[in-house]
Write a protein that binds this DNA or RNA. Structure first.
Length: 100
DNA sequence: CTAATGACATTTG
DNA sequence: ACAAATGCCATTA
């Protein structure tokens, strides 16, 4: 969609460096908004599926949350990126959170 | 335009 | 600490 919000969401999500992650809340804040759900929606539609590392975006509670391709699959991918995950939760969550 | 939904977050039980 | 309820914004129907 050509809405500014989603555009920003994708742009920011793409800026997340490898080995780091971010939360919906942080992204929403980066957009000067608190539409966490809208961010999640944007990523859910995700017309930039392979372009935007949506798997690097997780919940604020350190949980992975839900993902289209399966949460467990994302966990594996994040683990490969260097993120430590236990029971679907981020271990070094605070250490890997990327803030804009 | 109005209503409902969601890859959420926060507060309350 | 965990589970449920409420509130939030933007998008979709």
């Amino acid at each position: 969609m050509n809405t500014k919000f989603t555009e920003q969401v994708y742009n920011i999500t793409k800026r997340i460096p490898k080995g780091k992650i971010s939360t919906y809340g942080e992204i929403a804040k980066a957009l000067n908004s608190k539409a966490y759900q809208a961010v999640g929606h944007a990523l859910h539609k995700n017309p930039y599926a392979p372009i935007v590392p949506c798997h690097r975006v997780i919940n604020s509670n350190g949980k992975i949350g839900g993902f289209a391709s399966g949460t467990e699959n994302k966990i594996k991918l994040l683990k490969k990126e260097g993120i430590k995950i236990k029971n679907n939760k981020i271990i070094n969550f605070k250490k890997v959170v990327f803030r804009f």
